[in-house]
Design a protein around this nucleic acid. Structure first.
Lengths: 187, 187
DNA sequence: ATTTAAACTAAGCGATAGCTTAGAAATAAT
DNA sequence: ATTATTTCTAAGCTATCGCTTAGTTTAAAT
């Protein structure tokens, strides 16, 4: 038949994901992707169709990376304490390859907040909705909270995460920990 | 001698500021600035030197716009309650020309978090530092708070503002108000 | 009215963006 | 070994980026 692909798509996407995470979407050019992914433009376009295609796959790759953390969060039963641990881990994961900063999802949310790009927005909103659902579930474990309080607090936690992402880009460890503790004081 | 400028620099910068606020720095091209400012590229470069120059002046223009609010915040003596009111006003100002979203400073902070652009970073960091100083002053009005608590809470408020800015781009009024209330529950 | 210096218009500069294409290289199946 | 089919290289496409420049228009000063 024919030649086989010299690269593994999942592997090269993971590399692309780290580059996007580090630089954001707009500040990552296809030439930069070529170098980082180790394949040339023809192969990038043959495999993923467009720069946006590479990015969408990168988000999925990030989802796979965080899935374990997410599953752990879901399966535990410590209520609010689980969310707090998740926040601490979120900060931890940000540094697991050194150059990336903040949370990839929150960074993307910020970059695309004003954008018209529906496919990317969908991915991000879907991720955040899933997270909110988990928060709600955890908060409901406390029987003293009524429905309204649960929704308010879930929304608060989701928004507080934006500050956390910003913090983990510039602030030091202690400030970040203080911030997390402050968040949970009102829950 | 010679011809006079057909435009007022402060006026055209204000228009540029709203465009930058709406689209961010990278997503605003010099061609777009031409249209919005009503002057052509030659005049833009003659007056402000570069696109970055226009942006720096835009930040200053934003500072002038928010100065009144800032002064009011400084001169009041209601402590934490002043900060809360400031948060509510911050959300209000975001909509005062319709198309802008979030807080211009926070948007810029997010866009330039990974950037090497020192001049722009300086402007933003200086703005946030000034805000933090005011927060600290307000928090100190409560004699029961020790120095450490004050610093922790000021940091918390500054970071919480990132969530507020994100919220005011997509969430509805009620969710935003709920979020603000939640922030101050732990103060 | 003439001079003169600045403001203006419009065209275009090189660099880079995302993306495409023509043709050479490689390899599984025959 | 030949064939068939895909991968890969490298060059180049058009569009847009920030910015500049040549040349015209305008108006204050003489």
């Amino acid at each position: 038949m024919a030649r086989k692909k010299q690269y593994n798509e999942e592997e090269v996407i993971e590399k692309a994901m780290y580059l996007f995470w580090k630089n954001g979407y707009e500040n990552t050019s296809v030439r930069m992707l070529e170098k980082e992914m180790g394949i040339n433009q023809f192969s990038i376009y043959a495999s993923f169709g467009s720069k946006q295609g590479v990015f969408l796959e990168s988000i999925k790759s990030y989802n796979r990376k965080t899935k374990e953390m997410f599953e752990k969060l879901k399966n535990s039963n410590k209520g609010v304490e689980d969310i707090k641990e998740f926040f601490y881990e979120s900060v931890g994961i940000s540094g697991f390859r050194g150059t990336q900063k903040g949370c990839f999802v929150t960074n993307t949310y910020n970059e695309f907040a004003e954008s018209e790009d529906k496919m990317i927005k969908e991915q991000i909103v879907s991720f955040m909705d899933k997270l909110k659902e988990v928060f709600i579930e955890k908060l409901k474990m406390d029987p003293t909270k009524d429905e309204e309080t649960v929704l308010k607090q879930a929304n608060y936690l989701l928004l507080a995460k934006h500050g956390l992402a910003a913090a983990s880009r510039v602030n030091d460890r202690k400030e970040i920990e203080d911030y997390i503790e402050m968040i949970f004081k009102s829950i």
